[in-house]
Design a protein around this nucleic acid. Structure first.
Lengths: 231, 231
DNA sequence: AATTGTGAAACTTTTCACAGCA
DNA sequence: TGCTGTGAAAAGTTTCACAATT
């Protein structure tokens, strides 16, 4: 293990500033959290890593290892308490706090995000909407009044809204990312098919449907065996 | 999912053409392809792995290694011919063929996908739309007439349409995946926040916005250094 | 002089396998 | 007995560094 002590063998529950947990682990924790929510709502009280692994289509060792970076949440011989594990993972991911999100772009994708049920389950709330088309300024989407993009700096309070989701065309992404970074927004998710240069104080993620489709066409074209992971 | 004990993910591949190319490599090839398109359209004729690496925010060795799995496309001392490399990568990803896609679900997300400009650049064409709300049957979205979901099996020709994109609620995903698999669809991309059990003959991908947001909230909450990768 | 292509090294992630505990 | 937690081994991925080539 060449990671040379990124985790002391102590039972630290919270990792501090510099431990290096892989992105894959974080993404899996997110799926565990979502599965645990469903199990909790169906009244399941306890689950073993083996059973959870079956649902997730991964190995049980993977689950135990992922959790071990953050502490010991199970009971030997018994498994994990569903609600307790869900709460613990939620805390690791920061889902115990309410997250206010600004949405930039109010086209079809923006509206789809506004209606997305999963958000509030995760404590995510879109609280402001910005749009460059002036004819839309002042119109309502759900309970939120659309603001003009020129007012971004004026209307956003980064102490409240720390996340932004961009449902805008590729050519607008870089400038909006730059403006959001200046305001002090902490994280941005955008959907456009484009690379952006990322200011240091900001975490940026991209979700690009064409990349996903191209992994499909690659595998189909090259007749590769189906990879089991779906997330 | 219980397929007799827990299954260890079928990572092993016994197939004709390729050996074991990682998913990360395929995803990067997809981004190279998109960058090369832009370079081509701006008249750039040649690019070195170093310059491409700067754009992509990765190392040049990574690019050369990714390409080396598939052949030698550059000229020592000179770099790569932009159009030629774009064509070669396109061929690897299967983008030299036209892909007809069926869309299931015609809500906001479905409409956003219908309007998505990037698709045709990649030779992706949504040619059929299915919807469970009968009041929408027969209405037009763009140039396509919406069909009722009951007619899925009747109206889909898997020799033409090999891909499906699902813009439907989580509770409908599993049954649609099962039906598409029976018809002989080869690849499915869905957006709902949910794991599905995947029939053997089908490749399934999931794009889940809450997972992306949770990687953001994790990093912000734990004040981890910004990871450079944005895609 | 510049830059590819690639083995080998370095590093990361996953899986194994079992001690230890309920 | 059943199942977790975890070092160690195995597998996988990225980076290094340089011979080969234009």
């Amino acid at each position: 293990m060449a990671r040379g002590g990124y985790l002391r063998p102590v039972k630290t529950v919270k990792n501090e500033i510099d431990s290096k947990i892989s992105d894959s682990t974080i993404r899996r924790l997110s799926t565990y959290h979502r599965t645990l929510s469903i199990l909790e709502s169906t009244g399941t009280e306890t689950i073993s890593s083996r059973k959870l692994a079956e649902i997730e289509n991964i190995t049980s060792a993977q689950i135990r290892k992922d959790l071990s970076y953050f502490g010991s949440f199970g009971r030997r011989g018994l498994g994990y308490n569903v609600s307790m594990l869900k709460t613990k993972i939620g805390k690791i991911l920061g889902l115990d706090k309410k997250w206010e999100i600004i949405l930039v772009g109010s086209g079809h994708l923006g509206k789809a995000l506004m209606n997305y049920d999963e958000f509030e389950k995760k404590n995510f709330f879109i609280t402001k909407i910005f749009e460059k088309d002036p004819s839309k300024t002042g119109t309502m989407i759900g309970e939120i009044k659309v603001e003009h993009i020129d007012d971004l700096e004026k209307k956003v309070d980064p102490d409240r809204e720390s996340l932004a989701v961009l449902a805008i065309p590729p050519e607008d992404v870089q400038s909006i990312v730059d403006r959001l970074s200046k305001i002090g927004i902490k994280g941005v998710l955008y959907f456009a098919s484009r690379t952006v240069s990322v200011p240091r104080n900001l975490i940026v993620r991209n979700e690009d449907t064409t990349i996903e489709l191209e992994t499909l066409t690659y595998h189909i074209t090259n007749k590769t065996e189906r990879p089991v992971r779906t997330t």
